[in-house]
């Protein structure tokens, strides 16, 4: 279990760092968007590049932030039944859910989105809009995000299995679930 828990700590810290990057993307997306409006209104200048940067950041928030959100246990659940379960049963739901629900999807999507990025990269695909941005950076976010999410899934799995085996993982594990703010 020890090396696995070390792996888990490593993943947690990588995704915490990615989460911080995604935090900043929120502020940057906001600043760029407000800036676009001011500049367009003020000096009748603007460009599709700056409009596209907004949703590049948006894509970054989602793809880089989802794994940290998983770490914080903040992906919303239907807690009709889950809310009545004890801690051990909840851990079991998570263990099975990660193996049967999460990992198949994230691994499949990571595998599928990779060639999609590669094709765009090789062809040097640009934007169909005048003055727009190259597309591969935002397409790279997809395989990257799904790999990070798969890793976080493994990390959460390791921590929960350790808990079930009566070991206290040193890595932080969030078992308590709060419905997120909305």
């Amino acid at each position: 279990m020890r090396p696995l828990l070390a792996f888990s700590r490593g993943v947690d810290s990588i995704n915490a760092a990615m989460g911080r990057v995604a935090d900043w993307f929120v502020l940057l997306a906001c600043a760029v968007s407000a800036g676009n409006a001011f500049v367009r209104y003020g000096i009748s200048y603007s460009s599709n590049a700056w409009l596209e940067v907004q949703w590049y950041f948006f894509a970054g928030i989602i793809m880089l932030g989802a794994s940290y959100t998983l770490f914080r246990n903040e992906h919303v659940r239907v807690d009709l039944v889950y809310g009545m379960l004890g801690t051990r049963a909840r851990i079991w739901v998570d263990v099975l859910g990660i193996i049967l629900f999460l990992l198949p999807a994230t691994l499949l999507l990571a595998w599928m989105t990779w060639p999609f990025f590669v094709d765009s990269f090789i062809r040097n695909e640009g934007s169909p809009n005048a003055g727009g941005l190259l597309r591969w950076p935002v397409k790279l976010l997809m395989p990257l995000g799904f790999v990070l999410l798969s890793l976080q899934g493994l990390s959460e799995l390791v921590k929960r299995v350790a808990l079930l085996r009566g070991e206290q993982p040193e890595a932080e594990v969030v078992v308590e679930y709060h419905r997120p703010d909305q």
């Binding site: 009748s44 200048y45 603007s46 460009s47 599709n48 409009l51 596209e52 809009n129 005048a130 003055g131």
Partner: peptide
């Protein structure tokens, strides 16, 4: 754009 229009998608 060549004539100064600002295309805005």
């Amino acid at each position: 754009a060549k004539l100064g229009v600002v295309p805005q998608q």
